[in-house]
Amino acid sequence: MSVTTTRTDLLTIEGLGHVYEGKQRHEAIGRLDFAVPEGAFVSIVGPSGCGKTTMLRCLSGLMSPTRGTVLLGGAPVIGVPRDLALVFQDYSRSLFPWRTVAGNIAFVLPRKQLSAAERKERIDESLDAVGLSAAADKYPWQLSGGMQQRVAIARALAYRPTILLMDEPFASVDAQTRAELEDLMLAVRQRFGMTILFVTHDIDESVYLADRVLVLSKSPSTIVASLEVNLPSPRDQVGTRELDDFVQLRSKIARMIRDQSTRRPSAPAIGDSESPS
């Protein structure tokens, strides 16, 4: 379960920084250095407005950062790589309202490489994975928020990326749905064997899901800590959250996030620190 240093790194971020130019110049990301090993589930927590979305846009190649490099599988990211998919924070505006659920998924599948039968299979499989097989012919606006989010996830799954980036995907769903979606992500990871980078501002969620949690500071963001999560697998919504390890880790992260508003720690070295500074 634990991430060992012998695993190869799929995504490597070196000296990443971003400044929004303009009338009000804003340094969103200070300096980020980290690596995501292949097959890992890494979650990133940070306060609202600390530059998490900005970071994901840089990692996915939607935007080029002001400083630093992003390597995916050893190659620099210029433009969006084929092997990468991103689930946006604002899922409702990223689904196409003029297409049905199945249509939204079909739309992202490359027409040339896949036969009609293969496309159908992919659609069915990914809808089944998120438990939405019955809603295939509905339109996104006929679904609840949680269902829409699941469609966005299914669409990304059908695309079969090697790495999946997710931007606060469960921020606007109720607690019950959220728990279901969290377990869905764990199941999906198992089923499709993807590397997942999961951004959230929910500390519990970050610990519950991940092998490793990166804690970001306020803007301009740096990495406050990179913590390994050694919780038994499979995780359980009730059981896991009761474990001493879980409680201690979440308190530690909560303290860090609270404390960095008063003092600014220097960025630790990549991936090997188990505690702040």
């Binding site: 939607l62 990468l84 998919a85 991103l86 946006f88 505006r93 003029w98 739309f107 992202v108």
Partner: peptide
Amino acid sequence: VETLHLDTGRVFEFDRRKVFFGIVLPS
């Protein structure tokens, strides 16, 4: 046109034709 729709097109590698007929025109 919703920028997030265009970004979605970029994430899923839409070519120009697909962006035009699939996103811009319907929007």
